[in-house]
Nucleic acid binder design. Sequence first.
DNA 1: GTAAAACCTTGATTTTTATCAAGGAAAAAT
DNA 2: ATTTTTCCTTGATAAAAATCAAGGTTTTAC
Lengths: 192, 192
Amino acid sequence: MFDVFAKYLTDKITLSEPELTQISSVSVIRKLRRRQYLLQEGDVWRHYAFVCKGCLRIYRIDEEGNEHILKFCIENWWAGDRESLLTGKPSRCFIDAIEESTVLLITKENFNSLCNEIPVFGGLVNELLDRTYIASQERIHVNITYTSEEKYKDFIEKYPDISTRVPLHMIASYLGISAETLSRIRSQNSKK
Amino acid sequence: MFDVFAKYLTDKITLSEPELTQISSVSVIRKLRRRQYLLQEGDVWRHYAFVCKGCLRIYRIDEEGNEHILKFCIENWWAGDRESLLTGKPSRCFIDAIEESTVLLITKENFNSLCNEIPVFGGLVNELLDRTYIASQERIHVNITYTSEEKYKDFIEKYPDISTRVPLHMIASYLGISAETLSRIRSQNSKK
DNA sequence: GTAAAACCTTGATTTTTATCAAGGAAAAAT
DNA sequence: ATTTTTCCTTGATAAAAATCAAGGTTTTAC
């Protein structure tokens, strides 16, 4: 499974064999069955995690026990709870696998070493963070601006690959609307 | 006005006199009157901007002409459109002053040089970016989880200083609810 | 292969929120 | 100081969305 990560990296940056070996040596592959947790609320998240295969979700549970999905992570995406990672505080999130999945884990310490020792790697990570931040600003904009229907359209446009493999009620949770409302939006759209 | 920025920096990191002088030499002070634009949609944003005094807002305008406020920036906050800054593309945002304000501008190029040449400065910036990202994740969570009333309560709790100096309808815009609804929420709360 | 669980849809009803409209208070501009 | 603009509130109404409930389908687990 390391080859998936290697391909992801070498598609974007040039790495020597020793560098790839170095990255490989600190990478740990972890398989997850459906519904299996990668992180539970209260635990401290200490890794960087790259999804080689499958689909995860990051979510929080409110006082009434309702789940609210912050993010879906499919192949070639990064997963994790950056807040817990950076602050060292217990996470408020759960991460679990929606499908049988494989993730590649690198501890924070090893990851930082890689960033320092392999500058192009560090550069890639910074670029990724930039893009992630921009995407989160965009999501805030969508959230405060769009109607439920527009939010759904925007979602399937931005994430066509996710919208086909994730249950509807999870998309509703991600968008912050009820599953019933989303079901009705979808059926109305298909009539047009 | 540079002293406000100098204090902000030296409260967090240790800087030598020459370093402060170096920072000062690339800083440009700009005064803004009420409603004056710092950035208009379509322009490329090329700076880092630190608010020394006053209050700005960053917002977008939708097809129907409605404003949606992405962020308020008061003293000791950073303003700008990171998307345009990093991509070099025309901004989709407006930034203007809600009050008479003073901002300190540093061009992207000079700013990057400072980060490289003064490592503690770069470190501070990275930390700031981390916290900003975490805050944006938190805002997304609030958006998809909370009711309008809870969103408002959360806002005045997180930003008591902003909530007292910004018009109500702008807070409504920031939260993604109508001004009338927010007015009613507030009057109901005060009855309790 | 079958039972159980998860998922989606639809209807009826209630709750929440937006919209439209108008009046008054407060603040800004000159 | 006064006019103008902005801002806030309140009411009435319409629209949107949540909730409750139930039935049917699909998928998963064993």
